[in-house]
Simulated assay, not measured.
Amino acid sequence: MAVELERTEQVRSKIHIKNPLLRNALSEFFGTFMLLFIGIGIVMQFILSNEKLNTWININLGWGLAIAFCVYLCSKTSGGHFNPAVSIAFLTLGKLPLKDFLVYCVVQTIGAALGSLAAFGLYYGICDHYCSNNKFILDQVNKFAGAYRTIIGSKATAACFCSFPAFHVSNTTCFFDQFAGTAILVLFVCVIIDKRNGIPAAAHPLLFGLVVMMIGTAYGMNLGYPINPARDLGPRIVTFFIYGSGVFSYHSYYFWIPVIAPLFGAVAGAWSYTFFVGAHIPEQRETTYVLVDEANQPLKLA
């Protein structure tokens, strides 16, 4: 064990990144990659098994756990944003520089895209089998690698990657759905990280996961609660090469909504906490206890 520890430290000394932005960017990339690799796998297991191996509550639980453990993964580096909406909230609160925010957005989106692609690779064979009887839905134009992969229909698989609202859900509803869901997320992130609330730092990632579970159980019906521009846009870029341009034109070019609406919702959620609660929490003063004698005089300790 001692030898292994020494080797670990030797490797650490050689590859340790001292530049904070580069270090945090690497963490945001890898953390978002892992989040989507796990999260997309959860959704694929749900859809590709005809909803037999997973249920809706399993998706909420799985994503909550994925958030919790991935934030634990990067808690000592970037803090584990994995979400441009969270990052923009921190930017407006003065907790993140503009340059860092822009870099985070890029690496989060790339990490999300590659994470979803890796999950697709593991489920490629099952997806092929699932789509094999899907020929009656689309013509040869939508044929990919010998299987028919579709955005809509009884055997649609595009929803494994990102959100596609039903036709009866308007884009206006979609916008406010993403606004509200992200506002709730960031509001409670601010509650959890506010030192005045006294929540131990070790509990933060688990609580973040529980917040995501709560949102999913309350407002997952319309879109599946992406509430994260990188989470939706990154995999959608991947689907462009699998399903075609329809992933962007679907539902009157709905794709921009889960990218833009969460940014506004995040800022609203962060500042609503500040205005309604955070700014009004009394400052905690340290209590000092002094030993006194019978004459109520302070005792001198030897």
Rank of each mutant, 00 (worst) to 15 (best):
228 N>Y: 04
66 A>T: 10
72 Y>V: 11
33 F>H: 04
140 Q>S: 15
34 M>P: 00
286 E>L: 08
200 P>Y: 05
6 E>G: 07
142 N>R: 08
134 N>Q: 07
278 G>D: 14
79 G>D: 11
43 V>H: 01
189 V>T: 09
28 E>S: 12
254 Y>C: 08
278 G>W: 03
162 C>T: 13
58 N>L: 00
167 F>T: 08
10 Q>K: 04
65 L>E: 05
244 G>P: 01
300 K>M: 10
99 K>R: 12
182 T>V: 09
246 G>I: 03
120 F>Q: 10
301 L>V: 15
60 N>V: 01
82 F>T: 11
301 L>M: 13
68 A>C: 06
283 E>V: 13
113 A>I: 01
160 C>M: 07
37 F>Y: 10
259 V>Y: 03
266 A>C: 10
230 A>L: 07
62 G>K: 05
92 T>C: 10
262 P>C: 11
144 F>P: 03
13 S>C: 03
212 V>L: 12
97 P>G: 11
21 L>K: 03
34 M>W: 05
201 A>I: 02
290 V>W: 14
109 T>N: 08
189 V>Q: 02
181 G>I: 00
142 N>Y: 09
88 I>W: 10
300 K>S: 14
58 N>I: 02
47 I>H: 02
161 F>V: 13
287 T>L: 12
9 E>K: 06
246 G>A: 08
206 L>P: 01
31 G>T: 01
250 Y>L: 00
47 I>N: 04
82 F>I: 07
230 A>W: 03
199 I>R: 01
30 F>G: 03
49 S>V: 01
2 A>F: 02
219 Y>Q: 10
3 V>P: 00
215 I>M: 06
240 F>C: 13
208 F>H: 11
147 A>I: 01
129 H>V: 13
32 T>M: 00
120 F>V: 05
20 P>S: 06
41 G>N: 04
23 R>N: 07
42 I>E: 00
36 L>N: 08
142 N>M: 05
93 L>F: 07
156 A>I: 01
186 V>A: 09
72 Y>N: 14
73 L>C: 14
35 L>V: 09
169 V>Y: 02
285 R>F: 13
137 I>N: 15
296 N>Y: 08
11 V>D: 07
156 A>R: 09
208 F>V: 03
31 G>W: 01
188 F>W: 12
141 V>F: 09
43 V>D: 02
57 I>G: 00
48 L>H: 03
236 R>E: 12
19 N>Q: 04
202 A>Y: 06
225 Y>R: 00
40 I>M: 01
28 E>W: 02
235 P>I: 07
302 A>F: 10
220 G>H: 03
87 S>N: 08
172 T>S: 12
20 P>E: 04
222 N>T: 12
216 G>Y: 11
199 I>G: 14
231 R>M: 06
186 V>W: 06
166 A>T: 06
192 I>K: 07
87 S>R: 11
76 K>Y: 14
231 R>K: 12
165 P>Y: 04
138 L>D: 14
223 L>T: 15
146 G>W: 02
70 C>D: 15
205 P>C: 10
244 G>W: 05
143 K>G: 15
244 G>Q: 05
224 G>A: 11
189 V>D: 01
256 W>T: 12
80 G>Y: 05
269 G>F: 04
183 A>H: 06
264 F>G: 15
198 G>W: 06
118 A>T: 15
270 A>R: 12
219 Y>W: 09
49 S>C: 00
201 A>S: 14
125 G>V: 02
16 H>L: 03
110 I>P: 01
14 K>I: 03
33 F>A: 08
